[in-house]
Computed example of a mutant assay.
Amino acid sequence: MTRRAFIRYLLMIGAALVGLSALFSQLLKKKFLSEEALVSAGTPDASAAPESPLESLSTEPLMSYFILSDLHVTAGDPQTIKKLRQALDDVTHFDGPVDAVMLTGDLTDTGTERDYKELRSIVNDYKLPPVYANMGNHDYYTIWINKANSWDQGAMPNGKTDAMSREQFKKFFGYEKIYNEFTTKGHSILLLSQEAYVQEKPEVGEGAWYSDEQMSWFKERVKALYQPGRPLFVMTHQPLPPVGTDGGSHQLIRAMQFRETLKPYKNVFVFCGHRHQDFQNGTPHYVQESFHFFHNSSVGRTLNRAYQQEAKNKAQGIYVQVYANKVVVRGREFSNRTFIAEANWSIDLQQA
């Protein structure tokens, strides 16, 4: 074979090898792309797999708030001022989320302009989350107070009216009505308010009277706001009487209608104040009906079983945490910033 022929032979072999290499490369590429398409179309990526229902339950609360009841703030009792400051100090420095603060009645001791001024001076000293409130019986007590800011039962109503008390409350909070609602992070709270006292309706005594208008509003808002599987919260001041009865003095008066309104719904939590009962004196603070019913203690004047202010330094309230599958309710001692072991409830939510 001549030298020229040998070189031509080598060039032919090289070209054939290059062609085979290109063909083999294309076959590999086609196979790889085919398998990749198969994976993306039919085989789930483990890292992108959806979480199971149990895994999706957050370990952090979805919403949390404090309930402070029976503050009884008055310039005539410096202890009430001290205790509210203890509570608000705790709230603002709390080691956990606080999305709102509910004040459930008896914000002041007499409902007078002087007491509201004292309350304003305290609240203004703190950077708080949204604060909502309803009225208690003491917020109507201005009718017992004369021009010298002294108790004068013989001169009742001392030139005052229940309407003036309602206006004072609405002006303080900027409300159009004394009953209202608050929603945050998809969870709602309804606050019902006592609408009259003994100047207008002597028969109510210290009880909570709600008008037809408020009861209709309550029924409509419960229906509109309730979401299956989620809790709905209701705040009152006075407690409920025994099941099957309407209340009188020191109780929610239209109790049968109140209970009937809530009966169709699961996961409703009702909180009241008024009793001032110490979480540590053995009295029950939680009752399960068709809803969950909690009795709060008092910030301003915590009482023992005999309704005496035995432990003068105590100032108590409630901290509520909402989770995907439960609601946790815990009693709080504001004077030393600790949770109360005797007041610790975890309520599983009923699913839809």
Score class of each variant (00 low, 15 high):
Met1Lys: 12
Thr2Ile: 04
Leu11Cys: 11
Ile13Met: 11
Leu20Arg: 08
Leu20Val: 10
Phe24Asp: 13
Ser25Asp: 08
Lys30Tyr: 04
Leu33Lys: 10
Ser34Glu: 04
Ser40Thr: 13
Ser40Phe: 12
Asp45Gly: 06
Ala46Arg: 12
Pro50Leu: 03
Ser52Arg: 01
Leu54Tyr: 10
Ser56Gly: 01
Thr59Gln: 13
Leu62Thr: 07
Leu68Thr: 06
His72Val: 11
His72Glu: 11
Thr74Leu: 02
Asp77Pro: 06
His93Arg: 11
Asp99Lys: 06
Met102Gly: 01
Leu107Asp: 02
Thr110Trp: 14
Asn134Ser: 05
Gly136Pro: 05
Asn137Ser: 11
Asp139His: 01
Lys147Trp: 07
Asn149His: 09
Asn149Phe: 11
Asn149Pro: 07
Gly154Ile: 03
Ala155Tyr: 01
Lys160Asp: 05
Met164Ala: 13
Arg166Asn: 11
Lys170Val: 07
Asn180Met: 04
Asn180Asp: 09
Lys185Asp: 10
Ile189Gln: 04
Leu190Phe: 02
Glu195Trp: 10
Glu195Ile: 08
Glu195Tyr: 06
Tyr197Ala: 14
Tyr197Ser: 15
Lys201Thr: 09
Lys201Gly: 02
Ala208Gln: 08
Trp209Gly: 04
Ser211Leu: 12
Asp212Val: 13
Glu213Trp: 01
Gln214Arg: 06
Glu220Gln: 12
Leu225Asp: 09
Tyr226Asp: 07
Gln227Pro: 00
Gln238Glu: 14
Gln238Ala: 02
Leu240His: 04
Pro241Lys: 00
Phe258Thr: 15
Lys263Glu: 10
Cys272Glu: 09
Gln277Lys: 04
Gly282Ile: 13
Glu289Pro: 12
Phe294Leu: 13
Thr302His: 03
Ala306Ser: 14
Lys312Cys: 02
Ile318Gly: 07
Asn325Arg: 05
Thr338Phe: 00
Phe339Ala: 04
Ile340Val: 13
Glu342His: 00
Ser346Val: 14
Asp348Asn: 14
Leu349Asp: 00
